[in-house]
Every structure is written in C-alpha cells, then in structure tokens.
Computed example of a mutant assay.
Amino acid sequence: MTVRDEIHAQITGALADAKFPIGTPEELLAAFPDGANTTCKAGNVEMTAGEAGKLLKASDFPFRSAKQVADVIVQRAGL
C-alpha cells in the first residue's frame, strides 16, 4: 500500500462514525475521534486533522462522505 493509500484509509477509518453531510470545518474537526489532534501516519508522512483542515477551502463543503474528505486531503497534500 502506498503512503497515499494508507493516509486515505486512515482518514476514511477515522471518519467511519461521522454523520454526513458535514457542512463546516468545525463540524469536520469535531467528527474526528481526537478532534484536531487526530493523527494519520504512513512512511515518513505524519499529518493531524488540524493540519489537514488547512488544506480545505470553504467551497469544498459540504462533504457527503468520508471518502470525499480523504480524496480532497490526499490530493491537496500532494500525496
């Protein structure tokens, strides 16, 4: 599994119990198990939900699924 795939899987896993749609950055951070401190690690990449949130734009919302959140984050992070 690539670093991109691993981070993507960790994000979708962390949001498995989230209620979608998620309409704001604050709702998204609250949906992570440890909030902004939720951390994904793979290879030499480590990213918190708070750091990942900085990659998002207001126009990205609302998110309709965990996969959609993960897709945007890994793409913007350049993974």
Results as ranks from 00 to 15, higher is better:
residue 25 P to Q: 06
residue 10 Q to E: 09
residue 6 E to P: 01
residue 36 A to G: 03
residue 48 T to I: 02
residue 58 A to W: 01
residue 66 A to V: 07
residue 71 D to W: 02
residue 45 V to N: 10
residue 68 Q to H: 11
residue 10 Q to N: 06
residue 56 L to N: 11
residue 26 E to K: 08
residue 75 Q to E: 13
residue 20 F to D: 14
residue 15 L to K: 02
residue 12 T to A: 03
residue 14 A to Q: 05
residue 6 E to L: 01
residue 67 K to I: 06
residue 31 A to C: 08
residue 64 R to N: 14
residue 19 K to D: 14
residue 39 T to H: 05
residue 45 V to T: 15
residue 45 V to G: 06
residue 41 K to Q: 06
residue 48 T to E: 10
residue 78 G to E: 12
residue 78 G to T: 02
residue 70 A to F: 09
residue 54 K to N: 12
residue 54 K to V: 01
residue 49 A to M: 13
residue 9 A to F: 06
residue 18 A to N: 05
residue 1 M to G: 15
residue 67 K to L: 09
residue 24 T to L: 04
residue 50 G to P: 13
residue 9 A to E: 15
residue 27 E to T: 00
residue 30 A to F: 09
residue 70 A to N: 10
residue 49 A to L: 04
residue 16 A to R: 08
residue 24 T to R: 05
residue 49 A to C: 11
residue 11 I to N: 06
residue 39 T to M: 13
residue 3 V to N: 14
residue 55 L to F: 04
residue 30 A to H: 07
residue 17 D to E: 11
residue 16 A to K: 05
residue 29 L to R: 14
residue 37 N to K: 15
residue 20 F to W: 05
residue 60 D to H: 09
residue 7 I to F: 04
residue 44 N to C: 00
residue 79 L to M: 12
residue 23 G to K: 14
residue 70 A to H: 06
residue 68 Q to Y: 03
residue 38 T to F: 09
residue 54 K to T: 08
residue 1 M to T: 14
residue 41 K to F: 00
residue 54 K to C: 02
residue 17 D to C: 00
residue 31 A to I: 04
residue 48 T to M: 07
residue 40 C to N: 05
residue 4 R to A: 13
residue 55 L to Y: 04
residue 8 H to L: 11
residue 4 R to K: 15
residue 61 F to M: 08
residue 78 G to I: 01
residue 29 L to C: 11
residue 17 D to W: 00
residue 59 S to G: 08
residue 64 R to E: 15
residue 40 C to P: 00
residue 76 R to P: 11
residue 72 V to M: 04
residue 31 A to K: 04
residue 70 A to W: 05
residue 19 K to A: 13
residue 70 A to Y: 07
residue 18 A to D: 03
residue 31 A to V: 02
residue 25 P to E: 02
residue 40 C to D: 00
residue 53 G to L: 06
residue 2 T to S: 15
residue 62 P to H: 11
residue 32 F to I: 01
residue 23 G to E: 15
residue 4 R to H: 12
residue 25 P to K: 01
residue 14 A to V: 00
residue 73 I to C: 06
residue 64 R to G: 12
residue 6 E to G: 01
residue 49 A to W: 10
residue 65 S to G: 12
residue 51 E to C: 00
residue 75 Q to P: 00
residue 50 G to E: 12
residue 22 I to R: 08
residue 58 A to D: 15
residue 20 F to T: 11
residue 27 E to A: 07
residue 48 T to G: 13
residue 32 F to Y: 15
residue 33 P to H: 13
residue 21 P to K: 06
residue 73 I to F: 08
residue 46 E to T: 14
